[in-house]
Design a protein around this nucleic acid. Structure first.
Lengths: 269, 269
DNA sequence: TCCTGAGGTTGACCCGCATCAAAGTTTGGG
DNA sequence: CCCAAACTTTGATGCGGGTCAACCTCAGGA
């Protein structure tokens, strides 16, 4: 699954087990983006360990006072409210190269939990160490602030969708977002597996699972997608884009969700 | 209006016009929270100027590449999508001591604009300077990260509300949030003026202005509030809390919005 | 192999809120 | 002082999507 990116590594060596960023194919997506080789080696030193998280297991729980960040190396996560009360609200889905745990920085522990949706692997970075190194490497400091700020931007986009868009628009936005993020990582933007259930999609988009299911069927009938269980084929990206940006194609589409998200390869990150 | 807080200052002096944080009554809310007197004096040096923004004027526009942050000193702001298309989506309301412009850090300019809802005043801090000083003062660096992280936490709470709550719950959550933030600033938690229109409230909560108006009337009839145009009196805070946290009082209320927001004086900041 | 439970699809019904409409109220400018 | 525009309230109506329910498929375990 992640072969295409991992193949950028020289090989599966001892080196790649100990060190981290210097030999990682995700260097162009993750924390070290834009840093020099020398700077990246400094980061290697604070990446404590790589943790493997099995499907359905938690990387961290809500309330945990773990003062660390996690970079997804392999796999797929969701962040959500504690599962204690059955249907927990999903805040986001997280792919390789994305940082988890940004909500825990403010103190008082994580406000949500991170669950692996497939067997995954993360790099753990002590937040203390990251701050300390940031004081030495302005480029790292700036990069970290950029990541935090972009998370805020992204949350705003989700708020836009939740507050203003119809169910149909929400699903189109969601599929296009996934598409773009897969493309950035070197995968097909139009054909991929959904790692999450209909219920998790619905929770993320503020919809019921039945509505999500109906919309998939509806999109299929209109020839926009092919869908078989969790395998998905986006067969009409332009039309999906039109749906996502608003019901009225004549509208100048000035400030639609994807007017910004699409103008530059923002994706997550 | 802001007299109660400003009265903490020695006087309206020349000093208070030039310097900033050292003589500011908001020191316990704003960027310098938790820093030593010596550290705060260092911050004074990078607070470039104080800008006055008149009601309805913009502090910054979307797309502006201004690399600065703004701390609200006096007044009240909304952040929203560009007003170009009439009804612009509101992302948040911002009171004294809160930081604006966090979305602009990621580069590519601000993604939204900040409009004053009353005559206001902000302190401008160059983001470059803040990063540089953060490298010297770990406490400042940590405080800044805390602010960014808390903004993310807060956005998650808004997403929770938008995705899961009914109109009635949303308005109750909104009123209680305002109440708490006024209280933190030394004002009455139960009696205050709304600085924003029904339409702006609706935009923020993902509702139509008519729905907001109807809910105000409904709450009035139920004896929860007294409302006269924009003056508001919360006469039954416990019941508002019950409404906000969920329809079922028997529910353990484990992960409701205000289970967290209420347990500690989080407010904004 | 069957059994079981989780996940997915589809239908029927209806409620909450959007939408359209109209009238009252306040504010600010000439 | 008056007028126009902005804001607010309230009513009538309709639809999008929530809710309840039934059935189907698939994966994993005994």
């Amino acid at each position: 699954m992640a072969a295409r990116i991992d193949s950028a590594n020289p090989a599966f060596s001892l080196e790649s087990l100990r060190a981290a960023c210097s030999t990682c194919g995700l260097v162009e997506l993750c924390l070290p983006l834009g840093l020099s080789a020398a700077e990246i080696e400094r980061i290697d030193a604070i990446v404590r360990r790589r943790r493997k998280i099995r499907k359905h297991e938690a990387l961290y729980h809500a309330g945990t006072v773990c003062r660390a960040l996690y970079a997804v190396r392999v796999g797929f996560f969701k962040t959500c409210d504690p599962e204690s009360s059955g249907s927990s609200r999903v805040f986001g889905f997280h792919m390789a190269g994305e940082l988890l745990g940004l909500d825990g920085i403010a103190g008082g522990g994580h406000t949500c939990e991170a669950i692996a949706l497939e067997d995954s692997e993360v790099c753990e970075v002590s937040f203390e160490d990251l701050e300390a190194l940031g004081r030495e490497l302005p480029a790292l400091q700036k990069r970290f602030h950029q990541i935090l700020s972009r998370e805020i931007q992204r949350d705003h986009q989700i708020m836009r969708v939740l507050a203003c868009k119809t169910a149909e628009q929400r699903l189109a936005v969601f599929l296009l977002d996934l598409s773009e993020r897969y493309q950035i990582r070197g995968y097909s933007p139009s054909s991929f597996y959904l790692r999450m259930s209909r219920e998790e999609i619905g929770s993320y988009l503020g919809l019921q699972l039945e509505t999500v299911s109906r919309l998939f069927s509806n999109f299929r009938k209109r020839g926009l997608i092919e869908v078989e269980r969790r395998h998905l084929n986006l067969t009409d990206l332009p039309e999906l884009l039109r749906i996502a940006s608003g019901p009225d194609p004549a509208e100048s589409a000035a400030s639609g969700f994807f007017a910004e998200a699409g103008s530059s390869p923002s994706g997550r990150i």
